[in-house]
């Protein structure tokens, strides 16, 4: 009992003023705004928007991209909320409906492409590199901001954040992939996104095991 009392004295003695975190919704909006601006600039400079506009006539692709974008936005917002101690873990359910839409539309596309094209390699390797390449800087900046809340369940927060980043990367890929995709391409996009989620959560797990925090 005396130890706890002594610890309180020590903690109080070194308690400097702290800067309160801004509301999680605002922090998420700021990160999404910055990431969105960078992605919009890259799309304007480097993508072929004419080809994209032709491809986006396909209603299935519109639904798929809506699922990706909403998954990305809601997962990032969720990660900021979950990083705080007193927010309900039920927040983790928020990105699930758009995730289901994304996986269902992609799954349906895979199914139809399997019958029309079969096992055609397409540009799967490029899809994988693109999603990972876009995800790394996004995940790095997002984890940096999420760590400022010193989350109590960092692996869960990182996994949800990783889902958001992977979904945003997959959404961005559609602007740089202005040709018909194959069964393998679609599978690779989902696999690369899953890899990003696992890598982000794995990084946090490793950081914990090494006693970084």
């Amino acid at each position: 009992m005396a130890d706890a009392e002594r610890l309180i004295e020590m903690l109080a003695a070194e308690a400097r003023p702290v800067r309160r975190l801004r509301p999680p919704g605002l922090r998420a909006a700021l990160w999404l705004g910055a990431a969105g601006a960078a992605i919009a600039l890259a799309i304007a400079l480097f993508s072929d928007l004419h080809l994209f506009m032709a491809r986006v006539q396909n209603e299935r692709l519109v639904w798929e991209m809506t699922g990706m974008l909403l998954t990305g936005i809601l997962a990032v917002v969720t990660a900021f909320y979950l990083s705080l101690p007193d927010r309900s873990p039920l927040w983790a359910l928020l990105p699930l409906p758009p995730l289901a839409l994304w996986l269902a539309t992609t799954g349906y596309s895979c199914y139809s492409h399997w019958f029309t094209d079969g096992w055609v390699p397409g540009s799967s390797w490029d899809c994988l590199k693109f999603i990972i390449g876009v995800s790394v800087p996004l995940a790095g900046s997002l984890l940096y901001l999420l760590h400022r809340a010193a989350p109590l369940a960092p692996v869960r927060v990182a996994a949800v954040g990783g889902l958001g980043v992977a979904a945003i990367a997959a959404f961005t890929l559609q602007f740089f992939h202005p040709f018909d995709v194959t069964f393998l391409d679609l599978g690779t996009q989902v696999a690369a996104s899953a890899l990003v989620v696992l890598a982000t959560a794995g990084y946090e797990r490793l950081a914990l095991a090494r006693g970084v925090r």
Partner: peptide, 10 residues
């Protein structure tokens, strides 16, 4: 107590 101290800004 230590965690409260570490995350008091949240």
């Amino acid at each position: 107590l230590l965690t409260v101290h570490r995350v008091r800004h949240t």
